[in-house]
Design a protein around this nucleic acid. Structure first.
Length: 352
DNA sequence: CACGCGTGGCA
DNA sequence: TTGCCAAGCGT
């Protein structure tokens, strides 16, 4: 859970996860959908799928135990050099090095090296330096945790607290006043916007969802049926009646853009009556079962946007203004919090 | 080696 | 408002 995710985001979710699956064999017995539903809102959902695979690998290859050595840990899906070293050193005391973003920043600054953190040569130097430290430390666990804490709390990316740093006397970057230039900035990747149309169909018999593929963005999560425009340009002539034939009462509910990684997704939300026959892959989900269907936070916002709009029943469409002029529906400033398993979202959770 | 992969806090 | 960044990993 901690991979590329801040501790504060993890602490509120970790306990519920291990309460539900206290052992690797329990996790290995869960379904993919159950695991994803406990991961909702945490992001990087393939981590959840790999963790599930790793649990199954522990059952299949390590007698239902999590291996202790870093070298064995690193053979598990989703466990790389950092995670293997962190578990082996902190849990079992092995003298295994770790280099995460925090450690890299600390080491580069202390040694005054303005290197590209992503470069292979820099990574080799970082791992070698971290290994040297952990071999000389009295406690591998304390050294590794201390390095990360130093980076997270004191040697921060911006406005580092050098006055409180125990390594200030030996810090080359501090001596040379280059702290704010190390590490060098990573290359910016542009974030193009893609345009998606999504259709919210809900009635007393439930909400119509389908499941995204296990590859790509929001892998394996549930969504309202969505059309992803191939072109990066905004779709001028999208006709929902043509795109979703046989669906009646389609009306636009609003539009919004979410920033994801590594692009923006501009959603236009449509509301309609559920058709008599569902298209292939579509599935009705009752409100009380929504929590078992893992959804991205973006999809939560889709449901919020749709929640104030009804499909047109007859001739007079209360169609909102076209995409460019569309006013946002009154949604809360922040998306609903990721709910625990079994809770429902969408209409029933709408604020106000 | 470069890129894809979520989300939220913060300046 | 926008961009930066986070207890990385796999392809």
């Amino acid at each position: 859970m901690l991979q590329q995710t801040q501790v504060s985001r993890v602490v509120e979710r970790f306990e519920a996860f291990v309460d539900r699956w206290p052992t690797v064999s329990a996790l290995a017995s869960a379904t993919e959908g159950e695991v994803l539903s406990m991961w909702q809102g945490l992001g990087y959902y393939r981590r959840a799928l790999r963790l599930h695979e790793a649990a199954k690998a522990c059952v299949a290859r390590f007698g239902g135990k999590v291996p202790k050595r870093a070298a064995e840990l690193a053979t598990l899906p989703g466990v790389g050099r950092y995670t293997a070293g962190a578990v082996a050193s902190i849990v079992h005391g092995e003298r295994a090095a770790i280099v995460d973003g925090n450690v890299a920043r600390v080491l580069l600054r202390v040694h005054g090296r303005a290197l590209d953190p992503a470069a292979r040569s820099t990574q080799e130097w970082l791992w070698s330096t971290a290994q040297d430290l952990v071999e000389r430390a009295s406690s591998a666990a304390t050294l590794n945790e201390g390095l990360m804490e130093l980076g997270a709390l004191t040697c921060t990316p911006r406005a580092p607290r050098c006055g409180a740093c125990p390594w200030r006397p030996r810090c080359i970057a501090h001596r040379d006043a280059t702290v704010d230039r190390i590490p060098t900035a990573v290359a910016r990747t542009s974030r193009p916007t893609v345009h998606w149309e999504t259709l919210v169909m809900q009635d007393a018999r439930g909400l119509v969802l389908d499941r995204r593929s296990n590859r790509g963005l929001w892998a394996g999560l549930w969504q309202t049926p969505t059309i992803e425009h191939a072109s990066a340009a905004a779709p001028r002539a999208f006709d929902p009646k043509t795109a979703w034939q046989g669906v009646r009462g389609i009306v636009e509910a609003g539009a919004f853009t979410v920033v994801t990684s590594p692009r923006r997704v501009a959603f236009r939300v449509w509301v309609a009556e559920p058709p008599r026959r569902l298209a292939r892959g579509w599935q009705r989900v009752l409100p009380e079962s929504l929590g078992e269907h893992a959804m991205s936070n973006a999809m939560r916002r889709v449901l919020e946007t749709a929640s104030s709009v009804r499909p047109t029943a007859g001739a007079r469409a209360t169609r909102s203004r076209a995409a460019g002029g569309s006013r946002r529906t009154p949604v809360p400033a922040t998306a609903p919090r990721p709910a625990a398993h079994g809770r429902s979202y969408g209409r029933s959770r709408r604020a106000g």
